[in-house]
Design a protein around this nucleic acid. Sequence first.
DNA 1: TCTATAAAAGATAAATTTATCTTTTATAGA
DNA 2: TCTATAAAAGATAAATTTATCTTTTATAGA
Lengths: 146, 146
Amino acid sequence: MISKACKYAIRATIFVASKKEEGIKLNIKDIAREVDAPEAFTAKILQVLNKTRIITSLKGPYGGFYIEDYQLQQPVINIVNALDGMSVFQECGLGLRQCSATHPCPMHDQYKIARDALQDAFQNTTIGQLAEQVNEGGSYINNLGY
Amino acid sequence: MISKACKYAIRATIFVASKKEEGIKLNIKDIAREVDAPEAFTAKILQVLNKTRIITSLKGPYGGFYIEDYQLQQPVINIVNALDGMSVFQECGLGLRQCSATHPCPMHDQYKIARDALQDAFQNTTIGQLAEQVNEGGSYINNLGY
DNA sequence: TCTATAAAAGATAAATTTATCTTTTATAGA
DNA sequence: TCTATAAAAGATAAATTTATCTTTTATAGA
Ligand code: FES
Ligand code: FES
């Protein structure tokens, strides 16, 4: 569906967002531990998130990752786009070179419904909303408690 | 979403199904050419499809691949299951070890809607229905005509 | 039985994704 | 300025998926 890197990215972003109120910066190690992702891979992913302005980073002592107000308002689809691109929301479900209503594959109608539902899910949810949910304790971004 | 192998598999199965009325057996080369997939890779995929009884094969002269009546009634999800397994319909959208309503990720509700829509699409469509659509000329299983 | 044909099986190889490790750059505070 | 710290950048490596090539097996018809 979406890549592993992208899933780590979303969880990491939610974690950083969920700590905004505390006004602290988070380092790679803490983020990787919290979201249960490999540390070095997480570092690479955080680079992308910073470069695409999903979150913000500062080097050096007292540095780390944090999120700014405008970034909380971004839809989660921006993270998907940063890591995987938008192709999952546009591709033909049966692998034709392009999805098109005028040259459709035989599953086009049914597949498009699901694909659009997926896009809506990521488009209509903001990073801030997800962080709030986590802070309220109703949902989780790691596998602890199993 | 689903693997490339699985997309080739679905297109190949639809092609074989669409030729059922002609009562002929199709060989690997013809199938690969029609669905615009690499020939050797298609051969591997057809092996799986035969082994999982999605289609039927016969070795030797006058051999090849064909589909039987009961196989036309199978839902497309059986092909997905044969190639990729069912995990795409069960996995957490944010990569938690397991999707669960009692230990949900913050996107669980929205994601589940899309994931279930995808499952419905593959579950409620049979191979025969797709083949019929192609035979009626309303949809396509290759990239010709671009 | 022999021959030709076509899929099955098995061994590799190429490409992509996931993951790790080392070196460089930026920056705060002493 | 110097030192320590933390991310960025770059070079590899491991794992998985996609793809190819060779050998074996099954089978129809001569
Ligand atoms: S053409 Fe296949 S999903 Fe649109
Ligand atoms: S827990 Fe993440 S989708 Fe269900």
